[in-house]
Amino acid sequence: MAKAYLVVRMSGQINVPYWAKTTLQLLKLDKKFRATIIPAKENTLGMLDRIKHYISWQEVSADIAKELFSKKGRKEGYKKISNDDLTKLGFKSIDELASSISEGKLSMNKLKPIKPWFALAPPKRGFKRSTRKTYGEGGILGKNKDLIELVRKMI
């Protein structure tokens, strides 16, 4: 079983039922193309499966987590994360922070000055698959095995 999941919201805010809105807000995915890393727990897959028509997810590795924190990680005031912020949290480097997040030892909600989400851009050169179908039907939604490459295009 995975230790943590990278979750990206792929659809907008229009015509989303209230139960899906509350689940997306619990995951800190309020806007389109927001990403977060959540630790794998017993209720995590149920939440992801329930809102699979609005998000994509995949197991996260330490290298993509490091890339997200170094390029898209922000703190209060929407400023980049500095080494002083990492030492206040008890980490020596971004590598150590990324490995602890990807192993599921720490939740992004517990990192107080750091925002619990990453703001991504639309992918360079567009989507190669449908944005309205699940991965099994030829789209990008739901459990997506190609999400890491897609996120690299969105950074």
Rank of each mutant, 00 (worst) to 15 (best):
G12Y: 11
N83S: 13
L26D: 13
K145P: 05
S100R: 08
S130K: 07
N144S: 14
K115P: 01
A98I: 02
K72R: 06
L147P: 01
L150V: 08
R74Q: 09
K153H: 12
I81S: 01
A4I: 07
K21C: 07
I14N: 05
I155T: 10
K71D: 06
W19S: 08
V16K: 02
V60K: 00
K21S: 11
H53W: 15
R50F: 14
K112P: 12
K92F: 06
Y5E: 06
I51R: 01
L150F: 04
I155D: 02
I38R: 01
R74D: 06
G126H: 13
I155W: 00
N83E: 09
L147Q: 01
Y78H: 09
T87M: 10
Y18C: 09
Q13P: 11
I14K: 15
Y5R: 03
W117T: 03
D63N: 06
K128E: 14
K88R: 07
L147A: 03
L111R: 02
K133D: 12
F33Q: 05
N109C: 07
T22L: 12
T87H: 08
G46E: 13
R132Y: 07
P123V: 10
L120Y: 01
E42P: 03
I140F: 01
Y78A: 13
K124A: 06
G104F: 01
N83P: 07
L68Q: 03
R129S: 03
E59T: 09
E42M: 09
S61P: 00
K75Y: 10
K105C: 15
G136Q: 10
S82E: 15
D63M: 04
V7S: 02
E96K: 04
K128Y: 05
L45W: 00
D84E: 14
K41F: 12
G12F: 02
K88H: 15
K115G: 05
L97M: 14
E67N: 11
L106G: 05
L68K: 00
A121G: 06
A65I: 01
I14E: 13
D84S: 10
I51A: 01
E103P: 00
G139D: 10
K145G: 04
R125Q: 03
G46I: 15
S130L: 04
L120V: 04
D30H: 09
M1T: 12
E76R: 08
G46F: 15
S82V: 15
S102T: 12
N15I: 12
E103R: 08
F127Q: 13
Q25H: 11
E103C: 06
K21I: 10
N144C: 07
F33Y: 12
M1F: 04
D63A: 11
T134V: 05
K88Y: 10
G139I: 06
I140S: 00
I81D: 01
H53Y: 14
G136H: 13
K128S: 15
I81F: 02
K52L: 04
L150D: 06
N109V: 14
L48D: 02
K143P: 03
D49C: 07
P39Y: 07
P39T: 09
G104D: 05
D85N: 04
M1P: 06
T87E: 10
S11N: 11
T22N: 08
I38P: 00
A20Q: 05
K153G: 13
I140R: 00
I81C: 05
Y135D: 10
R129T: 02
K3N: 11
K75R: 08
